[in-house]
Design a protein around this nucleic acid. Sequence first.
DNA 1: CGTCTATTTGAATGTACTCAAAAGCGGTGG
DNA 2: CCACCGCTTTTGAGTACATTCAAATAGACG
Lengths: 187, 187
Amino acid sequence: MEGLFENFAKHILLSTEEKSTIESAFQQKEVVKGALLLEAGQVCRHIYFVKAGCLRTYYLDESGDEKNVILHPEDWWAGDLASFSQQRKSKYHIAALERTELYFIDCDQLEQLFRDVPKLERFFRILFQNGIAFYQNRLLSMLSRSAEERFRIFRSVYPHLEQRIAQKHIASLLGMTPVFLSILRKR
Amino acid sequence: MEGLFENFAKHILLSTEEKSTIESAFQQKEVVKGALLLEAGQVCRHIYFVKAGCLRTYYLDESGDEKNVILHPEDWWAGDLASFSQQRKSKYHIAALERTELYFIDCDQLEQLFRDVPKLERFFRILFQNGIAFYQNRLLSMLSRSAEERFRIFRSVYPHLEQRIAQKHIASLLGMTPVFLSILRKR
DNA sequence: CGTCTATTTGAATGTACTCAAAAGCGGTGG
DNA sequence: CCACCGCTTTTGAGTACATTCAAATAGACG
C-alpha cells in the first residue's frame, strides 16, 4: 500500500502502529474497463484510492446523456462524499475508464478509523479543502474560458490522459460535444 | 455569537468551555457595501462567517471582467482556503455586496483552535465535504443546463437574493452576460 | 438634482450544437 | 489472420443559444 501512504504523507505524519491500523481497514481490488463502482440511486458505501488506471464520476441526465464531473487517474481519491456522509442516495455513477487497481474502505470503517486515528480527520479536512479549490478552478474555467481554452488547459494539466481515454469522455468533462472537440483538435 | 454556534451545532456538539475558547478566538466586524475583505495576490489571513448581509468571491480575469465564483449570504463561510492553508497568493477577491456583519478568525488562530478544540477539525472536514458537493452541483449545472435553467435554479435556491443584489452579479455567478440575463427575465 | 452605474432594447455576430452520414478503429469469432 | 460488427471519431450543413456593441432608459446615491 505504498502509494496510499505516500498520499497520506502529503499532509500528515503517521506512526508505524497507525499505519498498520489503517492498512488493516483498507482492502484492495482490481476492476476491468467499464466496471461500475457506484450507481446513482444507491448510497455510496466506499471511498476509493486509485493506485493505477482511471475512474470517472459522472451524472446521467434526464435525456440519457452522461456528464463527467471529474476524472480520477492514479493517486486520486474517488467516492460520493455527500452521499457517504449523509447516507443519501448518490446522484452520480462512478466507473472505470481503464483496467484499474484500487484501495478502498467501507464508510463505516472509515468512521471508525477517524476515531482510532484522529489525524485522519485532519488529512481529509485538508484533502477536501484542496478538493474545493480544485472544483472552484473547474467552475471558473466553465465561467470564463472558451471550449478551446478549456481543452488547452486539460492538455497541460493531464498531459498523458488524452491518449489513454476516449475523446467523448474528455468532451463530456470539459462541457462540450465530442463533435465539437473533434473540430477543435483538427485546428 | 449565536448564529456562529448554531452553525457549529449542525455538525458537532460543543461544551461550554469549548464555546468560550472559540468565542475568544473570533472577532466581530461590520463592513460597508463594496468593502474588500481579500484582494487577489495577497495571502488569505482570515476566515469569515456571515452573520447578516452578503459577500461574494470573484475572479478578476485578464480582460478586467469579474467572475463571481460564489455568493456568501447569511449563515455562510467565506475565505480562500487554498491560499489560507498553503500560504499562497489568492486568485480571488472577496467583497461585500451589502452592508455585512461578520465574525472572523485569523488563520494562525484557527490552526491553534484546531489544537485546542480538535472537534473543529471534524466540523471543517464536514463543512468542506459539503462544499465539494456544492461545487460539484454548480459545475454540473454549468455542464448540462442552459442559461435559462441555471437562472431558474438560482431563483429557487436563493429566493430572496434576486431582489437584494445587482443583476450583473447574478449573471456573472451563473456564467452569462447581464444583457442576456435581462432578456431572460423579460420572458 | 445631477452624476454615475446598472439595466433594457435592438441588430448583427459567433461559438458551439444538432443531425446525418461516412470513415476509422478495436475487439471477437470463425 | 482476416472479416465483420459495434462503437467512436470525423466531416459537413444548417441552426440555436448566447454574445458583442451601441444607444436609450432607469435607478441609486451623494
